[in-house]
Design a protein around this nucleic acid. Structure first.
Lengths: 187, 187
DNA sequence: GCCGCTACATTACAGTCGTAATGGAGGTGG
DNA sequence: CCACCTCCATTACGACTGTAATGTAGCGGC
């Protein structure tokens, strides 16, 4: 081999390239040649590592979802912090406030557009939403909020709206603390 | 003329066709030939009535936004009903629970994907969101909710999440009354 | 030496894309 | 009657799409 690559490192590098392109480009999926150029390879490399474009995009979705879920669980694991602090961290972890999170948000939104037809993508949405709901509900339970499941549902849906607001209107359009104040009794 | 058309009737018919295709098709924008076939015309007709595809899509967006805003204002104008009933009606008017609203939701989501690059689309999002926020805040004020602006923000963002939930997971995934119970003191 | 393998690069191809160009049908004003 | 317009259908074109096919450079085993 010309260079040392651990298994699937090329694939994740390509997935990162897809995320970058989706973030800073138009919301539609980029072409193979564009992805190859961003990843610093050729389309032949893409064809070697992915059987088809769909598989590549699905891998990119899983890649970014895994990164996102890992970050979420890391926030939730900090039991030393108050529920309010954990919830704030979770929300902040999901908002597109830096390049990495903007890429994840763009990826998620782009795939949600295609999920209505492709059932595999919709299942990913369901699974990811389930993870988030559990984490949120856990914190609302810790905070002794009356109906924790409902509060978690509202917050998860509000997060969805905040992500698009933040993406389209800028970071100043979202007021995380005000939202949490409403859903959580002031400590 | 072969047939009697009121001004812009062809354009709105095309816009409806775009909405139908976006609703039942993949989230991405359909091609000119597909749009023409759905509208029962040829691509020549499209080219005659719209200078470019972008203008056509923008017109379709405005068309569906106008329909949606009109329906919203109609719900809000019913002062005989309680704030809770009006809010419930507004939420229901925005969820993709029938074909027309599913088309509007699909159109909105598809354009939101493209709004990150095209500033004209982002401005439409801002304007539409402003309208909705005003209507929601008005009802929260009528209901004497402590921070009506914040409640309106949360609900508008939650509606965004409910729309995607409803679109991807089905109508049973959203609990409108539970959400309103949380944001509105039980009457 | 040689085979086979992985990991690419390059090229070719069939199809689709949006749009420009052309032409024709019918109605209207002079 | 003829020019002129709108409205629309058809065709053509260049750019771009995803992918199949082919070629090649390096390496491990025998």
């Amino acid at each position: 081999m010309r260079e040392r690559w651990m298994p699937d490192a090329r694939r994740t590098a390509v997935a990162d390239a897809v995320g970058r392109l989706l973030m800073r480009g138009h919301g539609t999926f980029p072409g193979m040649r564009e992805i190859a150029a961003e990843a610093g390879v050729t389309t032949g490399t893409l064809q070697h590592h992915f059987s088809t474009k769909e598989e590549m995009l699905l891998f990119a979705l899983e890649h970014h979802c895994r990164r996102c879920a890992d970050r979420l669980r890391a926030q939730s694991g900090e039991d030393a912090r108050s529920p309010r602090q954990v919830l704030s961290a979770i929300v902040r972890a999901l908002l597109p406030l830096d390049e990495e999170r903007a890429a994840e948000t763009s990826v998620a939104k782009a795939f949600m557009s295609h999920a209505t037809t492709h059932p595999g993508f919709a299942e990913h949405y369901r699974a990811q939403r389930e993870i988030l709901l559990d984490l949120l509900r856990e914190q609302f339970e810790r905070a002794d909020v009356p109906r924790p499941a409902v509060a978690a549902t509202i917050l998860s849906q509000a997060i969805d709206g905040m992500r698009t607001d933040c993406l389209l209107l800028g970071p100043d359009a979202v007021q995380i603390d005000a939202v949490l104040d409403q859903l959580l009794p002031r400590a």
